[in-house]
């Protein structure tokens, strides 16, 4: 039950940020992919089943909000949630380097997939790639720093990484 509450809370925060502060930034060309970031965080913490479900529900809400191409965000985010959830047992989940790579990769996948619906023809690809690159460069470091701050403030690993917990204790 607590997990479901957390799922909806994270969805709410992500969608709120996306439709307010981040939409203004996005219109100026700085895309902070809060959807990909949330999917990564949830999947790292809860595994592939919950990660895929979170990605699907978050994507569905984002698709409904955008009003065009239902299913666009759902597919990409469900796959990201599943993929990262599958990896989470084999990764050092509380390492900033892991966060940086995963958030960056998830942003690139999500942005390429969703923006490809907006771009018509080959001529649009340079623009798409520039935008995807900018989104990854902005989202990955900022997301990593945010997770690092949360980790430092709480004083314990966010994703329950045993190795990290014992490292930190030394």
């Amino acid at each position: 039950m607590r997990n479901i509450g957390g799922l909806f809370l994270l969805m709410l925060v992500a969608l709120l940020l996306r439709s307010t502060a981040l939409s203004s930034l996005a219109a100026r060309g700085v895309v902070l992919d809060v959807l990909a970031f949330s999917a990564v965080v949830w999947a790292l913490r809860n595994g592939e089943t919950s990660g895929a479900t979170f990605g699907f529900l978050l994507g569905l809400a984002a698709d409904l909000d955008a009003a065009h191409w239902l299913g666009r965000h759902t597919l990409a985010l469900a796959l990201i949630g599943y993929g990262i959830g599958r990896l989470n047992q084999t990764l050092m989940r509380d390492r900033p380097a892991t966060h940086l790579i995963l958030i960056g990769a998830a942003t690139v996948i999500h942005q390429i997939w969703t923006l490809s619906f907006e771009i018509g023809g080959l001529a649009g690809w340079p623009f798409l790639l520039a935008r995807v690159g900018l989104a990854a460069v902005a989202t990955a470091p900022l997301g990593t720093v945010l997770l690092w701050i949360v980790q430092r403030v709480s004083g314990r690993p966010i994703f329950g990484d045993v190795a990290f917990a014992s490292d930190s204790g030394k």
């Binding site: 089943t49 698709d63 191409w69 239902l70 299913g71 759902t74 469900a78």
Partner: peptide
């Protein structure tokens, strides 16, 4: 189970896209 769930989500997403 998680693989089946992902397949369901993928099918639903493709249905929504179409």
């Amino acid at each position: 189970r998680s693989g089946a769930l992902l397949a369901l989500y993928a099918i639903l997403s493709l249905f929504l896209l179409l």
